[in-house]
Computed example of a mutant assay.
Amino acid sequence: MTAFVALIRGIGPGDPRKSNESLRGVLEELGFTGVKSVISSGNVIFESDSDNDSDVDALGNRIEAAWPELRGFTALTVVRSAEQIAHLLEQRPFGDVEHGKASYQFVTFFKQPLAAPPEPPADFPVAVNRIVDGALCNQVDTTSTGGPEVMKWLDKTFKKQTTSRTPLTLARILKKMEG
């Protein structure tokens, strides 16, 4: 069995259809095993008999198609294996800089890997803007622009076909996948 994580866009507390229990229930209904949640923002770990990373698109599409059918909502779903998450983190896209307000770091995932980073607006203090394993890695000084402004830019640029996580969240996900 291979460990994967479903990174689900737009999940937060307040909607019972999107609770951790409900999200896990969908993956269990689809026949996946070892289903676990990591924080309440749409990170669901599961195991599948798929044995290679090339199946992540098919797994993501299968899970994404189940949301409206089984829970009545739509949500972009990107799947990555534990190996893919580990490799991305091993690349250290932010170097030795610690995550904080002046160096807010996030990794944006796409259904289809991105080939080149988009050019951010000139008024965004983006210190890192590069692609690592098909994901966009940004580091922004949120003390001057605020994180939401950057997310609005990404949503407009990519028409909400993304989902983002901090490297700290990705490390928590990986730890739970390996544990």
Rank of each mutant, 00 (worst) to 15 (best):
M1V: 03
A3H: 05
F4M: 04
R9S: 12
R9W: 13
G10K: 07
I11W: 00
G12C: 07
P13Y: 11
D15A: 10
D15S: 09
R17P: 06
K18L: 04
N20K: 10
N20L: 14
L23H: 04
L23Q: 03
R24L: 13
V26N: 04
L27N: 06
L27R: 05
E29S: 15
T33I: 14
T33H: 14
V35G: 05
K36N: 13
S37Y: 06
I39E: 11
I39Q: 13
S41R: 06
S41K: 04
N43K: 04
V44G: 00
S48L: 03
D51F: 05
D53C: 04
S54E: 13
V56H: 08
D57S: 14
A58K: 15
L59A: 03
G60M: 05
R62A: 07
E64V: 13
A66W: 06
E69Q: 13
F73C: 09
T74I: 12
L76A: 10
L76T: 12
V78F: 06
R80G: 01
A82P: 01
A82N: 06
E83A: 09
Q84T: 02
I85Y: 02
I85L: 09
A86P: 02
H87W: 01
H87Q: 07
L89D: 05
R92H: 11
R92N: 07
P93G: 00
P93W: 03
F94K: 00
G95N: 06
G95D: 07
G95I: 12
E98L: 06
H99P: 08
H99I: 11
K101Y: 15
A102D: 15
A102N: 15
A102M: 15
S103T: 15
Y104W: 14
F109N: 00
F110L: 02
F110I: 00
P113I: 08
A115H: 11
A116M: 12
A116R: 13
P117E: 00
P118G: 08
P120L: 03
P121D: 09
D123M: 09
F124Y: 11
V126W: 03
A127W: 14
N129P: 01
I131T: 03
G134T: 01
A135S: 11
A135M: 08
A135Q: 02
Q139C: 10
V140Q: 05
D141N: 14
G146Q: 01
G146E: 05
G147C: 13
E149S: 05
V150K: 00
M151I: 13
W153Y: 07
K156F: 09
K156I: 10
K159M: 05
K160N: 12
Q161F: 08
T162H: 03
T162L: 07
S164T: 15
T169D: 06
T169S: 09
T169C: 04
L170Y: 06
A171N: 10
R172T: 14
L174H: 02
M177P: 00
E178W: 03
